[in-house]
Design a binder for these strands. Structure first.
Length: 156
DNA sequence: GCCAACGTTGGC
DNA sequence: GCCAACGTTGGC
């Protein structure tokens, strides 16, 4: 069992949007970073736990829980000239970008960046590292457990 | 809107 | 294979 954090801009897809999707499941399209793609393609397994993170918004932070719901397959948006995620250098024969399906499980309280930074137990999270830009990243099991406990508590 | 940090591109 | 230029991310 692996643990992950996945960023989404709530203006695009919020945890509420994900929960409202058919089966609360949606293809995690639009990832255009090789490292993030490799995590989805090579390491994710069905049933892995996911922290659903809201980024580029007024209150960035963990907003819900989700799980990996498929193995990796090509991201269709890369082939669509009308999509903002279109990649003219990709082809059906050799698709460049892969994704997995993500199933939303629950909305949580908003666990903001400032609160995450308060805890020494989380000091090594990749999310909190300087200049971090990865949109899909692994979370250590201890960090995941600590965060799920925090989510059940009131904000500090 | 600003800007630091980072990844990618492409000329050499 | 180096590296400058450029584009993007994402918090503030």
């Amino acid at each position: 069992m692996n643990y992950w954090l996945m960023k989404s801009e709530p203006d695009e897809v919020s945890i509420d949007d994900a929960l409202a999707a058919s089966g609360a499941t949606m293809p995690w399209c639009g990832v255009r970073n090789y490292q993030a793609r490799n995590f989805m393609r090579d390491t994710m397994r069905v049933g892995d736990a996911v922290l659903f993170y809201h980024s580029s918004c007024a209150e960035p932070g963990i907003a819900g829980l989700a799980e990996v719901a498929s193995t990796a397959y090509p991201d269709d948006t890369q082939f669509d000239p009308d999509s903002p995620y279109h990649d003219p250098k990709s082809s059906h024969e050799q698709p460049r970008w892969m994704l997995v399906d993500i199933k939303a499980i629950a909305k949580t309280r908003l666990l903001g960046l400032d609160e995450l930074r308060k805890h020494p137990e989380l000091a090594h999270m990749r999310l909190l590292a300087r200049g971090n830009r990865l949109s899909v990243m692994p979370v250590a099991p201890d960090e995941y457990r600590f965060i799920t406990r925090l989510l059940k508590k009131k904000p500090a």
